[in-house]
Amino acid sequence: MSEVEEDKNWLTILAPRILKAALWGFIMGGEILIPLYLMPDLVSQIETSMPAAGTGLPTIAAIFVAFEVAIQLFDRTIFRYALSISRTMVSMILFIIFTNGGIIEVLVPPNGLPSEAGSLQILVDFSTILAALLVFSLLSIVKNILQAVDFLSQKVEEPIIPPELP
C-alpha cells in the first residue's frame, strides 16, 4: 500500500473521530457554559455560596470538555473506558469538594440586615443525597470496567485472518 493511500486511510479513520469529538465536546461544554452566559447573576451566587469558589465553573467545564474530547477520540479502543473511569472519579472528587461534603453554608453579611440584627447564617445539609450520587458514580465505574472487559473479550474472539488467505 502506497504512502498516499495509507495517509488517506488514516484520514478516513481520524476525521470522523475528530468531528465527533468536537461535537460531543461542544455539547458537554455547552451544558455547563450556556448557564454561565445566560444567567451570570445566578452563577455568581452559586460560586460565592460554594466553599471552593476560587476554582470556578469555567474550570469544571474545561475539565469535562477535555475528557469528552479524549473519550471520543479514543473511541473503540480500551483507552476510552479508562478515560471514562477517570472522568467519573474526577467528577466525584470535584462534587465532594465543591459541595463541602454535602453541606452548603451561606453567610449573609450584617450590611444586608437591620441594625439591631446580627449575622444570618443559612446551612443546607444534603450529605445523604450526595452519598447516593457517589454510589451511582461507583456503579458507573463498575459499568465501565465491565464494558472494558467485554471489549477485550470481543477483541480476543475476533478471528485473525492472515493477509495471504482470500
Binding site: I122, L123, F126
Partner: peptide, 14 residues
C-alpha cells in the same frame, strides 16, 4: 427525612 436546614441569627441586640 433527608435534607437538613438550619438558620442561625446570631448576636441580635435586645
Amino acid at each position: 427525612n433527608i435534607i437538613g436546614f438550619s438558620v442561625t441569627m446570631a448576636n441580635v441586640s435586645i
